[in-house]
Amino acid sequence: MENKKDDDLMEYVPYTTDSRSFIAPTKYTLFTRLFIPWQLIKFAHYNIKMLRILSKGHGRFMDE
């Protein structure tokens, strides 16, 4: 299955406006984003992160 793009935005071109803030994921990053054992750990981590936000009480306060 060919999945080529017409313009390769992953390509770094030195001394261009684009190169000043160039950022792109590495192959390792792309692999870990879909690696299920690692993502199961991430899933637990995300739920803890969300609970921490919710534990702040939604910012809801009652007047004294």
Partner: peptide, 14 residues
């Protein structure tokens, strides 16, 4: 401490 960003399959599960 509460501002966080990440990308991955687990995000889709959430």
């Amino acid at each position: 401490n509460y501002t966080f960003g990440d990308i991955g399959l687990a995000g889709h599960w959430v």
